[in-house]
């Protein structure tokens, strides 16, 4: 249903427009094609290329073709559907976090964000005056009852079958209703031209990574949906030096620590460590679970800018 309607978008118009312009190009390129065919007869020049597995090979220059990038429609389609049979969950162990901020760096690299834009942010928390402060990484909670998708007027933000909440920047009109609806402040708005927008302007838009970022649209944590497709852990999870993150499939009842690579039962981990979710009373049913900051692996100095807390 959604696919049908999205076909009628401005992209479709652009496509038909492109065909007309392209037709003119094809006519002029006939002569070029003829020349290439003639050249194909005699191998003229060999070039040395490095394959993905590190082997040096020689290839006839005439045989070289540009790499086929996955077409936008295909990326959008699979991005909307998600990975069948999976149900992704994240567990964040607060007793291990000591504000190394490596997760934030990795995330900003992956999603082409500036240093002040956060899909995941490490916050300094103190629940009340006499309680101990602690650090809390906060990504999108990928709720099972997401308030954000309810308010989107253009079907741009949606939930997939594997539980991930995504946003389609091609559809987003920048109304920011979802930012207002999200109780976790997980979403950001691209007010200005995104970082490196010049550099990536020819990149095919990938809905599973929100890259390239688009000015005037909303962006948020995606659990690195493009990496999950390749059976890799999300960027933040695998970049943590302190073993804070566990990530896995709830259907398999197993989560894997991104630092140590140790796999444990999800249900046992939550049960034995009194895991909880944020703002449970709102009924949003988050997919990000927290383990309380008990038996810390470090001493909290209570000061974000203190050297001790920054590495």
């Amino acid at each position: 249903m959604t696919q049908k309607t999205s076909d009628k978008s401005r992209r479709n118009f652009l496509k038909s427009f492109g065909v007309t312009v392209g037709a003119a190009g094809v006519v002029s390129s006939f002569s070029l094609l003829g020349a290439a065919k003639a050249a194909a007869k005699e191998p003229e020049e060999m070039v040395n290329l490095l394959t993905a597995d590190g082997q040096l090979v020689q290839v006839d220059k005439n045989q070289l073709r540009p790499t086929v990038t996955e077409p936008l429609n295909e990326l959008q389609k699979r991005g909307r559907e998600g990975i069948a049979g999976k149900s992704f969950v994240m567990v964040i162990d607060l007793s291990k976090c000591r504000n190394a901020r490596k997760c934030m760096d990795a995330c900003q690299n992956h999603h082409q964000l500036r240093a002040d834009q956060h899909h995941i942010n490490v916050l300094q928390m103190q629940d009340s005056e006499h309680t101990a402060p602690y650090f809390m990484p906060k990504p999108c909670q990928h709720c099972d009852n997401p308030p954000c998708t309810k308010v989107c007027p253009v079907d741009a933000t949606f939930k997939r079958q594997d539980g991930i909440v995504l946003i389609d920047n091609e559809r987003c009109i920048g109304c920011r209703f979802c930012i207002a609806a999200c109780p976790y402040s997980a979403r950001i708005f691209q007010w200005t031209e995104p970082k490196d927008s010049e550099k990536y302007k020819d990149l095919t838009y990938n809905i599973e990574a929100n890259v390239p970022q688009k000015k005037g649209t909303v962006s948020k944590c995606l659990f690195s949906a493009d990496r999950l497709r390749e059976d890799k852990l999300p960027s933040c999870v695998s970049s943590c030096p302190n073993g804070v993150y566990y990530f896995g499939d709830r259907n398999e009842d197993a989560v894997t620590n991104g630092t140590t690579g140790v796999t444990v039962r999800f249900s046992k981990l939550i049960e034995e460590n009194a895991g909880y979710t944020l703002m449970k009373e709102l009924g949003t049913k988050p997919r990000v679970y927290y383990l309380p900051p008990k038996d810390r692996a470090f001493k909290f100095n209570g000061d974000l800018l203190n050297e001790e807390n920054l590495h």
Partner: peptide, 18 residues
């Protein structure tokens, strides 16, 4: 044996359009 439930197979408030 587990039969993973497709959460999109049910109608919900957060479901988009259809």
């Amino acid at each position: 044996p587990t039969n993973p439930k497709n959460i999109l197979s049910e109608r919900a408030m957060w479901g988009t359009r259809a």
